[in-house]
Design a protein around this nucleic acid. Structure first.
Lengths: 210, 210
DNA sequence: TATATACGGTACCGGACAGTTCCGGAACTT
DNA sequence: AAGTTCCGGAACTGTCCGGTACCGTATATA
């Protein structure tokens, strides 16, 4: 049950056609509610009201609350990062720093809030867990992996670095700070992770900052 | 509403007294259910059934589901660590390794499962959030802080290390691996965090393993 | 115009569950 | 023995909410 299904819907000639523009409104409303009250606190009526839609309009598109949420989470995947045009500053530190602009940080914070609303489900609904991982976790780790691979290719760091492992350091600390400590993630914190944890882990001490 | 209240309860002379031994059974049952199905999935009937108790027995002790859960979470605080008898191996690495015995790892896994069942509430119920933090997060970070302070005192690592920051590295990565990636935490992973992340972050490279 | 389906909105249904009440029996005080 | 409060268990109540049905209206085809 993805957006593909909406396009695959047979174009019945008769009657008023589905207003495709409502889909995005509903999905956005679902994400908002999800971020505010979590999956269990979210009701279909809340989503419908926020999207100024009728419940029937929602159920005409998604068969259940769960499917709606899976779709909503999946659709926030590519809001921010363009993998084909990642900045290339020439140093690992510069690459990482380029991903710490305010809009990116805001995007991270929003996704973290949605994620917090889903966590209790993740261990109990594998399909939703996968959608959430693909949308929130995977893209950031993927960016980190590419930066690390480039650093290896140019000889900046050792080639035997465990890329997936190191790529998860920063997401781990950001997630923990947000969900467990309930403290905000600002640029200073991200830079601190970079300089005091990630770079030392790949053998670039404080003096290699370049 | 803590266990103190149970002791403070006026010892009415009349009638059958409260069977204090039921409290622990009920709290343990609550933690089990919490770890299995999460807060929203947990019902009072489940807890009562697991503890072989009647619902009335639960409501005679706690005024609501939320209070019961807060108490249950708070009561798992001191299950494992004795802060007055922390091992002292003489090296930072040895100290950390001493906390990676199988029983300790199992304790961590159990607490993580409970925590996962609570996460969606943490941003919405500050009292519960604090109980959860005090029971799950704080003890481990506190151990790490003491080990780091000792390492500073004996001159093993630099004195300007940000102890609270570094103490959160390992909890962060363990939490992330459990909740986001849904993968198990074994000793190898913990050692990897220690050798490839924490020790480099305090200036002890792979060759200082001692 | 006639037909068909979507729209926002509302009313309703049925199940799940927090919390209450009562039962017959047990444990304690006086 | 009488009175009181506990016990496990079960029945009950009130509410919430996912999901369905239907309304009058809007927008499409033929």
């Amino acid at each position: 049950m993805t957006q593909l299904d909406l396009e695959e819907r047979p174009a019945n000639k008769l009657g008023r056609p589905l207003d495709v523009t409502r889909d995005a409104d509903i999905l956005d409303a679902a994400l908002d509610v999800l971020a505010e009250v979590g999956y269990e606190g979210m009701t279909i009526d809340m989503v419908a009201a926020r999207a100024k839609a009728g419940k029937a309009t929602l159920y005409r598109r998604w068969p259940s609350k769960t499917e709606l949420v899976i779709d909503a989470v999946a659709c926030m995947k590519n809001s921010d990062i363009d993998f084909d045009r990642l900045p290339d500053t020439g140093t690992l530190r510069g690459d990482f720093l380029s991903m710490m602009k305010p809009p990116t940080i805001r995007d991270v914070e929003h996704k973290m809030r949605v994620m917090a609303g889903l966590i209790s489900l993740i261990s109990r609904n594998p399909e939703l867990a996968e959608a959430a991982r693909a949308a929130v976790v995977a893209p950031r780790a993927e960016v980190n992996r590419r930066f690390l691979q480039r650093a290896i290719d140019r000889g900046e760091i050792r080639a035997d670095i465990d890329i997936p492992f190191v790529a998860n350091i920063s997401p781990s600390m950001v997630t923990y700070r947000t969900m467990m400590l309930g403290r905000p993630v600002d640029r200073d914190f991200l830079v601190k992770i970079l300089d005091q944890v990630v770079l030392p882990a790949v053998g670039l001490g404080p003096h290699h900052k370049g």
